[in-house]
Design a protein around this nucleic acid. Sequence first.
DNA 1: CTAACCTACAACCATATGGTTGTAGAACAC
DNA 2: GTGTTCTACAACCATATGGTTGTAGGTTAG
Lengths: 113, 113
Amino acid sequence: MVVEHDLTEDDVDRIFHALADRTRRDVLGRAIGREQSVSALARQYDMSFAAVQKHVAVLERAGLVVKEPRGREQIVHANGPTITQAVALLDQYEQLWIDRANQIATILHTEKE
Amino acid sequence: MVVEHDLTEDDVDRIFHALADRTRRDVLGRAIGREQSVSALARQYDMSFAAVQKHVAVLERAGLVVKEPRGREQIVHANGPTITQAVALLDQYEQLWIDRANQIATILHTEKE
DNA sequence: CTAACCTACAACCATATGGTTGTAGAACAC
DNA sequence: GTGTTCTACAACCATATGGTTGTAGGTTAG
């Protein structure tokens, strides 16, 4: 299995910030469904091309998406590994929570004896 | 199993925005590890009490944390279910990605025949 | 070649964000 | 009662964010 390189706190900031906007989440979803150009994406939103271009740039800086030049177009691909890393991050918090809940349950159980 | 009520897009915005700041992620981690007052949390950071108070408020609006009044203190508890919902959200994107990757693999396999 | 298309990027604007200090009230300690 | 602690909240400031329009360059179509 390939070792994923560790994310810096800045990386994590960028990932969650990128996901904290509904337009960007929608762009990511569409990019996962079908790779498409920035202008093809832009046509699907009620905002300027430049605005969508900026959203794509935010997703790109977060590593959630990759742009591949194709002639005059830039094809936007979703970047699976980063999504997986984001899931792993949240899983850590959930696991902390579960561990803590178990710990408390154990203490309660001990005190009952 | 209890039905988790659906998150609005605003809810999701708030959750990811709350997670997009390292101080808030750290506060959440500490709150998971041990429930503590806002001032106890504030003492652990090199910023004003008011600043930490605002970060806790952001986590609270996102539902990641709950404040319980205890005398003159407000005890900050982590809220597990919201963390679980956040994981589920990201899992959806990851699953979309996996489904898409499988679909592409299938097409490639078909074309090879 | 010329026109249309796709992208990049700058400039600008309103609002949000993350920090500060200061004021004020409620609860506890003595 | 008095002073200290904990919290809430307002006001303020610098910067970031999400949107706009406009300009300019590279690519494709006719």
